[in-house]
Design a protein around this nucleic acid. Structure first.
Length: 952
RNA sequence: GCCCGGGUGGUGGAACUGGUAUACACGAAGGACUUAAAAUCCUUUGCCCACAAGGCAUGCGGGUUCGAUUCCCGCCCCGGGCACCA
């Protein structure tokens, strides 16, 4: 019952827009390559081809049973050779392209400039040079190997050290793999998120996965004390905080760092045994075990070598430790215990020196002002120092010797306020209550820098010298109005937008740990904010050629090979003389051979490698003997572009015609589960951008494939736990449809709760929906013959029904587009109940009511549509419109509040004036009773709603 | 730890840009119809007190406001995602 929920929901959207006369493409297809199908086939000892066929047949039956309005003429199947021909074709495009960094786009490989020196060396050299730049390339890499599934996994599929499919922990293996340079698109995948309308959490996941961080590479010289084994190497580290270089007191390499191999081999390391032992345990450990150890840090110092801190020229020890990851950055870090939590823990454990870098000095603060276990925010003003406790991260720390306030963004803000408003005493702080002195203006800063709508500001009376106990908290908008100078200042800042204003005010921060270690007062960084310090020191590093600006990403290149049978064969041929040669376009698709034995092998080689008749071929380039590539593509391949194929699914000459792509793309609404909001979404965005770069997707379509991405909530079992086969709590739509019918099932799926939230399946709840549809049916039966709309009804009653009808049309028309299906259904229920009370459905509302119902319960609506005399299909009939003038009833219930409490309510005409309303209110006996003879100090009237009286 | 959600009756959940909190539905209780049951229909249903009149309630504590589920500050709890990423 999970899949049908989103199908039904988007079906309602599709049907509504279709009925509104729009051309709607609501497609369905099967992404059937990959592990799930293959494992299923192995388990039941059938061929994956058959498993696919069977499951497609079953899903098709179920979908048709539900009456979903998919366009079956566009049905696709990623395992169909007519489809995967184009998947292979696109792979070849990756192979035959390179990424031009300066143009920020992919281009055909022929356009790659070949350096003169290489040109002279002949074709082989040119080829080798090109191979280094191809978007698809083969490289030996450490991959995640799942011993149970016998498959190499992409990093994305082995997150957390376990196989995404089976949960088994993965091993590291060296393997030649086809890779795709998705990392070249990291910045664009990040930047272009601004263009799209995705759910916030989906955007966050994309950003998170790409994991961009900006900093610098810094070279540390590593030398040996020994005369017999002298070395002078340079270890490069990556850091996001080059400004803390002065505080780097040791270096840590990942255990598998190649330098360690070299030094061991050269006999430089004096404690070889310990080092080897540590490396061995580290290598043996699975990712899972490593993380399971409660983050207890371990490591071994490398005896016989030391590094030199380029800023201080101090000699510092070099360690290996598994808290440094080989695969990220350079696999080496400079440890700055005073400014990094992990380094701090490590330094404490192994008693390594801790040095703190501070930019300036200022006056004293008592040590007990600084919390022992945490940190404190410190801000000074004139001669006073304020210590404000805060959470770990926003820290303006106070060393024992003290330092002067640097000009942080807070300071800038403060200065600007002072200069522009003439206010002298301006303070920016964290906790209002802890500020003792009197100030004119205080910005209170929240824990998370999240001031979306405003923040608290205190205005203190300077003459009194002391703020009164309560203070006066006002909102920004009001604060703007209270003081001309402040208003002017704030108005200027308004052009930043609120967010930018706040970001500027509070974004800059510095991380330190209090009360530990010694302090380095750096003249070099004197008076600089963190970002300015970073820039200054990076400039210095670059100038002296010991470092450079750098950006790193968590995102890695996409491992595109699978050593499994059930996937698209990679359409390349390997020839001893020509290297890898693409299969010519006219020979595509390279068909997956139909074989009996397709189980994965222990050797890690594709099962296809065993089929020599298939493997042996001739080289398309030289005609000599050659072998086919036996790796297949990952299941993500076919699904990376299927939305493009939907626009032109039967095209034999192209993946889709430019005309069709221009007509349909980008996708307006993409709904799916959260399980595809990192990988599939990222891959398909990347894939699309690549095609767009090459002009395969027309420029006019834009660089993002999906305009909006939404996601539906899970359907949970009755107890609120996940449905799973092992728990036996899975509900199959077949059973539900058998008992209640497709329409009840559909409507319940939408009524059960908010579309984007997880909701438990409730067998009682579905009964209510059945009753509702029964009621609809019955009220229509009673309606028959009642052609005269006003028969027996008084005018007021009719007006109410009319108002309700127009309100419902508005609500449902808007609700469907906002994906608020549960309230749409309830609106239909309310209207139905009103019809039932009336005894029948007045003529003018019949068609519209059914048309709205048709979006949710298409079968019943169609049946009743014909019953009331129509001969066309309701699904092509149109969508009801509402009359904005008929949304209000002639009268409304005026609510009277006295001192915030509801004391009376009575109906009044919608046209009543404020004066009249006041008279009516004051003459009410109820109100008079509560007034006890007093006159209200104030009367607030909200038209159509409420009268609020304030009495002393 | 970080990032997203969320916390409202016995239950799933409503509530527009701050304006009658608890729509709609489930469940429960009572009633009508029936020999009886099912189905259907009607009534009641946040809590306290109940004769009425009141009072208290949207996770907790504050604040702003004539008025707060909604805005602000500080917390607590639950779900999901990420995580020794330097």
């Amino acid at each position: 019952v999970g899949h049908p929920r989103s199908y039904t929901a988007i079906d309602a959207v599709a049907r509504k827009h279709r009925m509104q006369g729009e051309n709607v493409l609501y497609p369905i297809g099967w992404d059937a390559f990959g592990l799930p199908t293959e494992n299923f086939a192995i388990k039941f000892k059938i061929k994956p081809q058959e498993a696919t066929k069977k499951n497609i047949a079953n899903f098709t039956r179920q979908i048709k049973m539900l009456g979903l309005g998919f366009d079956w003429s566009r049905e696709i199947d990623t395992t169909d050779p007519a489809y995967y021909k184009w998947t292979q074709w696109q792979f070849l495009k990756f192979y035959q392209s390179w990424y031009d960094e300066s143009a920020r786009r992919a281009k055909p490989i022929e356009t790659l400039p070949i350096p003169a020196g290489i040109k002279g060396k002949g074709d082989a050299a040119i080829r080798a040079y090109q191979d280094q730049y191809r978007m698809a390339y083969k490289a030996a890499s450490t991959i995640n190997w799942c011993p149970r599934c016998k498959i190499g996994l992409a990093n994305e599929e082995a997150a957390g050290g376990t196989c995404e499919r089976c949960g088994h922990s993965v091993e590291k293996r060296e393997k030649e793999q086809w890779m795709i340079r998705i990392t070249k698109y990291a910045d664009r995948l990040l930047d272009d998120l601004d263009q799209v309308d995705y759910l916030e959490k989906i955007k966050a996941q994309q950003i998170d996965w790409i994991g961009k961080s900006e900093g610098a590479y810094i070279d540390f010289r590593v030398q040996s004390a020994s005369k017999t084994h002298p070395i002078d190497d340079r270890v490069t580290v990556f850091t996001t905080r080059p400004d803390t270089l002065f505080g780097a007191t040791y270096l840590v390499l990942a255990p598998e760092h190649p330098y360690v191999d070299t030094w061991l081999k050269d006999g430089v390391i004096t404690n070889e045994k310990n080092v080897l032992a540590y490396r061995k345990t580290a290598a043996k450990q699975t990712e899972q075990e490593r993380l399971a150890e409660e983050k207890e840090k371990t490591g071994v110092v490398l005896g016989g070598v030391f590094a030199v801190n380029p800023a201080t020229q101090e000699q510092i020890p070099v360690w290996i430790a598994d808290y440094v990851l080989g695969g990220y950055g350079t696999g080496a870090i400079m440890a700055v215990p005073a400014h990094d939590e992990r380094d701090f823990a490590f330094a404490k454990k192994y008693e390594l020196p801790i040095k703190e870098v501070v930019a300036k000095k200022f006056g004293e603060v008592r040590s007990d002002d600084v919390r022992r276990d945490g940190v404190a925010a410190v801000i000074i003003k004139n001669n006073k120092v304020l210590v404000l406790h805060d959470e770990k991260y926003d820290i303006y720390r106070l060393p024992a010797g003290g330092y002067e306030a640097k000009e942080s963004a807070e300071e800038v803000l403060k200065r600007e306020i002072q200069e522009e408003t003439g206010y002298k005493n301006v303070e920016i702080g964290n906790y209002l209550g802890q500020i003792e002195a009197s100030f004119d203006l205080i910005f209170a800063k929240g824990r998370r820098h999240k001031f979306q709508k405003g923040f608290q500001v205190k205005l203190i009376d300077e003459e009194k010298g002391e703020m009164d106990q309560e203070g006066k908290t006002i909102f920004v908008s009001e604060w703007f109005a209270k003081d001309e100078a402040l208003k002017k200042f704030a108005m200027n800042k308004e052009s930043w937008g609120e967010e930018e204003f706040i970001r500027r005010a509070f974004d800059e921060k510095e991380l330190c740990f209090s009360g530990e270690g010694t302090v380095v007062n750096s003249d070099f960084l004197n008076g600089l904010s963190t970002s300015a310090a970073k820039a200054k020191i990076t400039d210095w590093l670059e100038k002296n050629k010991i470092g450079e600006r750098a950006v790193t990403y968590k995102l890695r290149d996409w491992v595109f090979s699978r050593q499994r049978y059930w996937g698209e064969p990679i359409p390349l041929v390997h020839c001893k003389t020509c290297g890898y040669v693409p299969v010519p376009e006219k020979e595509l698709p390279v068909l997956l051979p139909d074989v009996d034995a397709y189980e994965p092998t222990d050797t890690g080689e594709s099962p296809l490698a065993k089929i020599s008749s298939w493997v042996k071929t001739t080289c398309p380039s030289c005609g000599g003997k050659a072998e086919r590539e036996t790796d297949t593509m990952p299941n993500w391949a076919g699904s990376s572009w299927y939305f493009i194929r939907y626009t032109d699914p039967h095209n034999e000459h192209a993946l889709a015609s430019a005309e069709q792509m221009r007509y349909w793309l980008p996708v307006d609404l993409y709904n799916g589960g959260m399980e595809h909001t990192t990988l599939h979404l990222l891959y398909s965005r990347f894939w699309y951008k690549f095609l767009w770069d090459l002009g395969i997707v027309p420029n006019a379509c834009g660089s993002e494939p999906y305009r909006a991405r939404r996601s539906h909530g899970l359907v949970l079992a009755a107890g609120g736990e996940k449905m799973s086969k092992s728990k036996g709590n899975v509900i199959n739509p077949d059973e539900v449809v058998k008992e209640y019918g497709a329409d009840v099932f559909r409507v319940y799926e939408l009524f059960m709760g908010p579309f984007d939230q997880a909701v438990p399946w409730d067998t009682n709840g579905i009964e209510g929906v059945r009753r509702f549809l029964d009621r609809v049916w019955h009220v229509f039966q009673k309606t028959e013959g009642q052609k005269n709309e006003t028969s027996g009804q008084n005018a007021e009653f009719k007006t109410d029904l009319e108002t309700l009808y127009h309100q419902t049309v508005k609500k449902i028309s808007e609700g469907i587009d906002a994906l608020q299906f549960n309230t749409c259904i309830s609106a239909l229920m309310i209207l139905t109940n009103a019809f039932q009370d009336a005894g029948f459905i007045p003529e003018p509302f019949r068609d519209g009511f059914l048309q709205m119902l048709a979006a949710f319960a298409p079968h019943l609506a169609e049946e009743l549509w014909h019953e009331i005399g129509h001969t066309n299909s309701i699904h092509r009939s149109g969508w009801p419109a509402y009359d904005p003038g008929k949304l209000q009833t002639a009268s409304f219930e005026l609510v009277v509040q006295i001192n915030g409490k509801v004391r009376d309510r009575f109906p009044v005409s919608a046209e009543i004036s404020e004066e009249e309303a006041k008279i009516r209110v004051l003459s009410s006996p109820q109100v008079q009773k509560w007034l006890e003879g007093k006159t209200p100090k104030k009367m607030v009237y909200v038209k159509g709603k409420i009268m609020s009286l304030v009495v002393e």
